[in-house]
Structures are given as structure tokens and as C-alpha cells.
Amino acid sequence: MSIGLTLLGLLETGPRHGYDLKRAYDEHFGQDRPLHYGQVYSTLSRLLRDGLVEVDGVEVGEGPERKRYAITSAGVTDVHDWLITPERPEPYLHSTLYTKVVLALMSGRSAAEVLDVQRASHLETMRGLTRRKLTGDLADQLICDHALFHLEADLRWLELTAARLDQLAKEVRP
């Protein structure tokens, strides 16, 4: 996910200070990984360079001066294009999980064990997300659900794999 485009999207709702942007970003998208200030400002300067944002004004007061940024029409176009462009579905064929399962089987370990442990771990994470979802606002729910659906997909793959362990074992072991 592009931080630049996300910030542009946030700016589309109105001009903001860099500090505001970071707070808004963290509130909506940054539950797991809050942005660093440095990231925000380096991104903003890149956007300025590309003409996607402009400095709307500078607030001078005590402490450091604070620039207020606004989105340009080119920036709006970029956000729009990004939103209507589908994400490329990424097949995680060579994910770490797959590698671990295959390795477990090849080394004669109990693959079911690997799967069960993995499921337990996944579920633990999912419980946390669910708890947050139950107390959070709509944005929280959306972002948690996104993660939950992905984790569920992993688990479904794990279930299927567990069901096919016998078959898989024959194919992997010479």
C-alpha cells in the first residue's frame, strides 16, 4: 500500500498539517504500524516535487513553523486513478507457511502438528483482531475484517492441506 497515495486520499478531505496527517493515518490505517514523522515528511516532499500537493499556508507560532498542505487537481486525479485501479491479486504460492509444511513433511515431522500450531497462532491473532473490532469504530472494523479475512484464507488453506496430508506425503517423499 502506498503511503503517498493514502496521504493524498486523506488530504482530499481538506488541507492538513503534517502532524494532523500522521494522526489521521494512524487512526484509520496504522493500528499495526504507526507512521514515523520522517516518513510523513519525506513522502510529502516527494508529493510536492511531483506537483500532487501544494503548500496551502504556513502557521508561524511558538515552536517550529507548521506547513499546511493541500491536494492539487493532479493529486486528486492520482487518488482517483489509484482507487479505481484493481490491486493485482497476489498468489502466495511460495509463502513461508507452504515452505514450512513441505519441509516438515520432507523431514518426516508431523505436518498436522505444524498445522495445528499454526492454526492456534492464527486464531490467537484473529481473536485479538476480533476483540478490537468489537470495541472499535467502523474504520477499525473494516481494517480488522480485512486482516481477518486474509488470516481466515490462510487457515482454510491449512485445513485443506491437513485434509490432504496423506496425499501430499506420498508426493513429497520419494
Binding site: D116, R119, A120, L123, E124, M126, R127, L151, E152, L155
Partner: peptide
């Protein structure tokens, strides 16, 4: 349930496979 997303509402899970239960302690 067989859906992990639904199971995530639980406090813990018990897995049944071939009529036998299995509890995993992390």
C-alpha cells in the same frame, strides 16, 4: 463452526478430527 473468522469470537478452540478432540496449547 468450521469458519475461523467465527471461531475468532471464542476464548479458545477445540479441534475435532475423526471423532477425537485435540487441544493445542500455545
Amino acid at each position: 463452526t468450521h469458519e475461523a473468522r467465527v471461531a475468532a469470537y471464542s476464548d479458545r478452540e477445540v479441534v475435532v478430527r475423526d471423532g477425537r478432540t485435540r487441544q493445542v496449547e500455545l
